[in-house]
């Protein structure tokens, strides 16, 4: 409704409710909105900047230095200091995938057992002992995992299997411990969110607990369980120092799980400090970072896909 301006002015003086911009609460409201929106803007700019800078550096390898994309992704030899420098990153890609997949394969059954234990078998004991234990595990820093891997896992593997103990096996064992909390927590939440009636219906039909878990509980929560596994893998894929400390760091595809190998993160960690910004070697390392970044997006979208299926 149109109001004459003079009337509006009078209303403000008589304490009416028509909007006026000089009132303290209007300013306060505005300040709050602008402040919180700016914080969001910082977040968005940050991610934009990360993607932009990592991509521009990582792509320079191909557009400026003339390394072919196929050569980087499919090349088996990483010899940046050779007479003819070679930038084949396949050994690193292989190392990253094999350690994170193996870690997920080891951690997933453990995490699911823990979740079933905490929700279906002994909820009281689970809440009081197992859950805090797993939360503590989540809090241990990755360098400490690396240190323990180096002083326990590697010597044990060396004693049992041929080789030096370092390699993909050691890396994935350390990683599986690191991602166990992620998988367990998500699986536990999923199992706990299950409607009571579903389980009780199965018990009422005379099914044993295991039949109920196996036929009803696990299938219904499968998408959530997978979400946890993918999130765990994503964490393992991006983990740098713990793996770098136990994997041996030779840039080739190993013949066994107990032979020195390398991952994308370990290569970046070791070489980034020793190369000159702008050199082909340096740019090639940024390309490895770009692969890591792209994989992050892949993992996020897989998780989103699983969550959407779960909602249905």
């Amino acid at each position: 409704m149109e109001q004459p301006a003079v009337m509006n002015k009078k209303r403000v003086q008589t304490g009416s409710t028509t909007r006026a911009f000089a009132k303290p609460h209007v300013i306060e409201e505005w300040v709050g909105k602008v402040y919180t929106a700016l914080c969001i803007l910082v977040l968005v700019i940050t991610i934009g900047a990360i993607v932009y800078f990592v991509s521009s550096r990582g792509l320079a390898t191909f557009f400026v230095d003339g390394v072919s994309l196929g050569g980087l992704l499919g090349g088996l030899k990483w010899e940046p200091e050779g007479d003819i420098p070679l930038y084949g990153a396949l050994p690193f890609i292989f190392g990253s995938f094999s350690t994170s997949v193996l870690a997920a394969l080891m951690a997933a059954p453990l995490g699911m057992c823990a979740a079933v234990f905490m929700t279906q078998i002994m909820p009281g004991f689970g809440k009081k002992v197992l859950q805090p234990v797993i939360e503590l595990l989540a809090g241990i820093p990755s360098v400490v995992f690396g240190f323990v891997g180096l002083s326990v896992v590697v010597p044990v593997l060396r004693a049992i299997f041929p080789g030096q103990g370092i390699g993909i096996a050691a890396g994935s064992i350390v990683l599986s411990l690191m991602i166990l909390p992620t998988i367990t927590t998500i699986a536990t939440d999923a199992l706990a969110a299950l409607p009571r009636g579903l389980k009780e219906g199965s018990f009422a039909l005379g099914a044993t607990r295991w039949q109920t878990i196996y036929r009803i509980v696990l299938p219904t929560t499968l998408p959530s369980l997978l979400t946890g596994v993918v999130l765990g893998m994503s964490r393992a894929f991006g983990e740098a120092l713990a793996v770098q400390m136990v994997i041996g760091n030779s840039p080739h595809i190993p013949h066994s799980l107990f032979e020195s190998a390398s991952t994308l993160t370990s290569a970046i960690t070791l070489d980034m400090g020793n190369t000159v910004m702008g050199s082909t070697h340096n740019n090639a390392l940024w390309s490895l970072a770009l692969i890591l970044l792209s994989m992050t997006f892949v993992f996020v979208f897989v998780v989103r896909f699983l969550e959407r299926r779960n909602k249905r």
Binding site: I40, L43, I47, G238, E239, T269, L292, L293, V300
Partner: peptide, 20 residues
Amino acid sequence: SIRLVVEVLSSFPSIVVGLF
């Protein structure tokens, strides 16, 4: 999209954040 940004940002490997 903002929610997606937060999710992606939280899953970036820390080494990549270090490089940035």
